[in-house]
Amino acid sequence: MKYILSFVLNGQPVDVLAEPTDTLLDVLREKLRVMSPKRGCDEGDCGACTVLLNGEPVRSCLTLALSVAGQEVMTVEGLSKNGKLHPLQRAFHEHYAAQCGFCTPGMILAAKALLDKNPHPTREEIVEAISGNLCRCGTYQEVLEAVQAVARGEYAEVKE
């Protein structure tokens, strides 16, 4: 049976038809064609599908789509404002924190969730925050440096 699912995606209200067994990842990718959350394992291990639900990082492949009704979902598509990259996006780019790029959207959102709560995390806190986001290319060190650079204020938000 199909249900109408209404939620807020990157600040915009959306309505979409969803099956009860659809995951949020299914709805984002296969129905809304929001492609930054990646399908890496479909069982919560890899972190490539991480999105923010009301600001908290969740696995979209483990989140029942219908359960997000009325809530706010953010993907990397919603990060840049007026064409300006988010500080984390600039830092990831300049620190070479993306190699193949498949884990990058999830990694950036995991880092954003951390910095929103804790703008000056320790190294250990950053490591813990991204520990559920696998990068097989091995860019963890660069990711760590990029997040640290943002935390140090090196990528302050560009004022309009």
């Binding site: 492609m35 930054s36 990646k38 993907t75 990397v76 598509e77 990060l79 840049s80 990259l85 984390l88 996006q89 600039r90 990831f92 780019h93 070479y96 993306a98 790029g101 498949f102 990058t104 959207p105 950036i108």
Partner: peptide, 12 residues
């Protein structure tokens, strides 16, 4: 390809 990766626009 860095900007594509960090914006999620890279098409896999």
């Amino acid at each position: 390809d860095g900007i594509g990766h960090v914006t999620g626009r890279t098409t896999f």
